[in-house]
C-alpha cells in the first residue's frame, strides 16, 4: 500500500526506544499449602526503536507477548529486565506524565465509563487531560465527523455496539492530541465497514498530524492497509522487524498454480512443481521452479481450461514464520 506515504522530513529522535526489554510472570498454582511457583516469560530481550510518524504493526500468535509489550510501553506493567523509553520518558516511572503524550486503545475492553453517555465520557476525558474547551470542541467535531459518532453520542456506553464503542474509544484516546497512539487489537470483532472506517481514519491521523501509531492485530488486512513496517513477535521474542515486502521475501513461501482441467484426472506430475490438492478437475500445484516452464509443460501434457497463478498471501507468510521460530523452553519451575 502506498496511500500512507508519510512525509518524514525529520526522523528526529526515536519516540519509542526499547532495549533488551523483558517481563516474567510468577504463577502460583495448586492448593494453598502445596502451592508451586512457576515463572513464565512473556517477553524476552526485545530491542527495537520507532521513529516519529511511523505506523508499526505488531503481529504474533496468541500468547506471544504483544499485549504485555504494549503494557510495558504505556507504563501499566513494570518490566522485569531491560528498559524502555517512550516520548523521552520511562513509562513505568513517569506514567502519569507519559499519559498526556500518548493515547491508548485496548480493543478487548473500554476505557470509557460504562454508564455514561459517550458525550459525557468524552467531556470527562477532556477535564482529566485538561484540554481547553475550545480545542476540545474543535477536535470533537472533527472526530465526530470522521468516525461518524453523531448518531450515538448521547447513548450510554454500555448500549453501544462493539464497533461504535471502539470508535468512541479511539476518539477518547485522541482528544488530547497525543504524539503516539498505541492500539491493541482495535479491529477485533468488527465488520468490514467499521474496519475500513477505522483504518482510513488512522491513516489520515498519521499523515495529517504525524501521529506515530503502534498497532497489534491478528487481522492481516490491518497490516497490509496500514503498516509499512511490521514486527513479528513469537514466544516473547522479536522474530522479524522490517518492511512488509521484506517479510514476504524473508520467508520463502512458494507461489501456487491453480489448474482447471477439462475433466477430473489423477494428480498432475511435472518437474518443478508439486500437486498439493485435488478437487475434481481443479488442482493446486506448489511451484518450485520457473512458472513459465511449468505452465508450458502442464498445458502440453494436459487439456487445460483455465490457469491462475497466486502470490503467497501474507497470512501464509506469517504463519510459516510462527512455525519457523524455535520453540522457547518455559523458564524453569521451582
Amino acid at each position: 500500500m502506498t496511500s500512507n506515504a508519510i512525509i518524514r522530513t525529520d526522523p528526529g529522535e526515536p519516540i519509542i526506544e526499547v532495549v533488551d526489554l523483558g517481563r516474567d510472570f510468577v504463577l502460583s498454582e495448586g492448593p494453598f499449602l502445596r502451592r508451586t511457583r512457576r515463572t513464565v516469560t512473556a517477553v524476552r530481550d526485545l530491542t527495537f526503536t520507532v521513529r516519529p510518524g511511523e505506523i508499526v504493526g505488531c503481529l504474533g500468535p496468541n500468547g506471544a507477548g504483544k499485549s504485555s509489550t504494549m503494557k510495558m510501553l504505556t507504563g501499566i506493567l513494570t518490566p522485569t529486565s531491560g528498559r524502555a523509553r517512550v516520548a523521552g520518558m520511562e513509562p513505568a516511572r513517569q506514567r502519569t506524565r507519559l499519559a498526556r503524550e500518548i493515547g491508548v486503545v485496548f480493543g478487548q475492553r473500554t476505557t470509557l465509563w460504562w454508564d455514561l453517555p459517550l458525550r459525557d465520557s468524552l467531556a470527562l476525558t477532556r477535564h482529566l487531560y485538561r484540554v481547553p474547551g475550545r480545542a476540545h470542541a474543535e477536535r470533537l467535531a472533527e472526530l465526530t465527523e470522521l468516525l461518524e459518532l453523531g448518531p450515538f453520542l448521547d447513548t450510554p456506553v454500555r448500549q453501544l455496539s462493539l464497533g461504535q464503542r471502539m470508535r468512541g474509544d479511539i476518539t477518547a484516546a485522541l482528544l488530547h492530541a497525543p504524539r503516539l497512539l498505541v492500539l491493541d487489537e482495535p479491529t477485533i470483532g468488527l465488520d468490514v465497514v467499521s474496519k475500513s472506517t477505522i483504518r482510513d481514519f488512522l491513516l489520515r491521523t498519521n499523515s495529517e498530524r504525524g501521529t506515530t501509531i503502534l498497532i497489534t492485530t491478528h487481522d492481516l488486512g490491518d497490516v497490509e492497509r496500514l503498516c509499512e513496517r511490521v514486527m513479528v513477535i513469537d514466544h516473547g521474542r522479536l522474530v522479524f522487524d522490517g518492511a512488509l515486502p521484506r517479510l514476504r521475501a524473508a520467508v520463502p513461501t512458494p507461489r501456487m498454480l491453480v489448474v482447471d482441467l477439462a475433466s477430473a484426472s489423477g494428480e498432475i506430475e511435472v518437474t518443478g512443481a508439486r500437486t498439493v490438492r485435488v478437487e475434481g478437475p481443479r488442482q493446486w500445484l506448489e511451484l518450485r521452479d520457473n512458472p513459465a516452464r511449468v505452465i508450458a509443460e502442464v498445458t502440453r501434457e494436459h487439456e487445460v481450461v483455465d490457469l491462475t497463478l497466486r502470490e503467497p498471501d501474507i497470512e501464509a507468510v506469517v504463519s510459516s514464520l510462527y512455525r519457523g521460530a524455535d520453540p522457547v523452553e518455559e523458564a524453569g519451575s521451582r
Binding site: 506514567r95 491508548v104 475492553r109
Partner: peptide
C-alpha cells in the same frame, strides 16, 4: 480483575 484498572493507569490522574 475486570481490567478497568488498566484504563485508570493510562489516564494522567492518580
Amino acid at each position: 480483575r475486570t481490567g478497568s484498572f488498566d484504563a485508570m493507569l493510562i489516564r494522567p490522574v492518580s
